[in-house]
Each structure stands twice: as C-alpha cells, then as structure tokens.
Amino acid sequence: MTVLIDEPIWPAHGTVWAHLVSDVSLAELHAFARRAGIPERGFDHDHYDVPLARCAEMVALGAQPVTGRELLRRLQLSGLRVTQAEKKRLRGQRTP
C-alpha cells in the first residue's frame, strides 16, 4: 500500500491543506480515506484534501510524507493524475 501526503501549504477556509493520494489505485485511496474518517466530500478527482490539523494522523495511519513535487511525479507515473483541464471538463458534464 502506498498512500502519499504532501506538505500542507494550500490555504483555504482558515487553514492550510495537504493532498492525500495513492500511487497504486483509487480503490486503495478511498479505503485509506474511509479508515481515516475523511469525508467523501474531501475527494477531488485524484486526491483528498486534508487539513493541517489531521496531517500527522494520516502519517500515523501509514501515509508516506513526500514533497508536493514528489507526490505529483508519482501520481503522474501511476496514471491516476487528473489534469485541471480534465477536471473542468468533468465538472461540466451532467449525470442523468
């Protein structure tokens, strides 16, 4: 199991946020998030957003801390990366 977490540097909602990803599969990522009690609304196409206050907990549960650059590299190599353009396209699609 390889779940990765980067540095919490993304500001929003009065805190900073990290990204939690898997470089193996989305199923692995979702299973980790469920076990950690991360709400589904925290998922953004290829990662979960994790507030600073919960980052140490994610590491204690087994997430591997990496730099943002390393996280992106490994996510891209896994084929799980969803680009900003793809996210915009997906948000524009309506489901019946």
Rank of each mutant, 00 (worst) to 15 (best):
Ile9Val: 15
Ala36Pro: 01
Asp44Tyr: 05
Met58Pro: 04
Gly68Met: 09
Asp44Pro: 03
Gly92His: 06
Gly14Phe: 12
Phe32Arg: 09
Leu26Met: 14
Arg34Asn: 05
Gly92Thr: 08
Ala56Lys: 13
Ala27Ile: 01
Leu90Glu: 05
Val82Thr: 05
Arg73Gln: 14
Leu4Cys: 08
Ser25Met: 06
Ala12Asp: 15
Trp17Phe: 15
Ala33Tyr: 02
Arg91Leu: 13
Asp44Arg: 05
Glu28Asp: 15
Ala18Arg: 03
Pro65Trp: 01
His45Cys: 04
Trp10Gly: 01
Ser22Arg: 03
Pro8His: 11
Arg94Leu: 12
Gly37His: 08
Cys55Gly: 00
Arg41Ser: 10
Asp44Lys: 07
Leu71Tyr: 00
Leu77Lys: 10
Leu20Asp: 05
Leu61Cys: 03
Leu61Asp: 02
Glu40Leu: 08
Pro96Cys: 04
Gln76Val: 14
Gly79Val: 09
Val3Arg: 04
Pro11Thr: 10
Val82Asp: 01
Glu40Trp: 04
Gln93Met: 14
Arg94His: 10
Pro96Glu: 07
Trp10Lys: 10
Ala18Ser: 13
Pro8Ile: 03
His30Val: 10
Leu29Lys: 05
Val21Arg: 06
Pro51Met: 13
Pro11Tyr: 09
Ala36His: 00
Arg73Phe: 12
Gly14Met: 10
Pro96Asp: 09
Ala36Thr: 00
Val24Asn: 08
Val21Pro: 01
Gln84His: 01
His45Thr: 08
Gly79Trp: 07
Thr67Val: 08
Pro11Met: 09
Val3Gln: 06
Asp23Cys: 12
Leu4Phe: 06
Ser22Lys: 06
Leu90Asp: 02
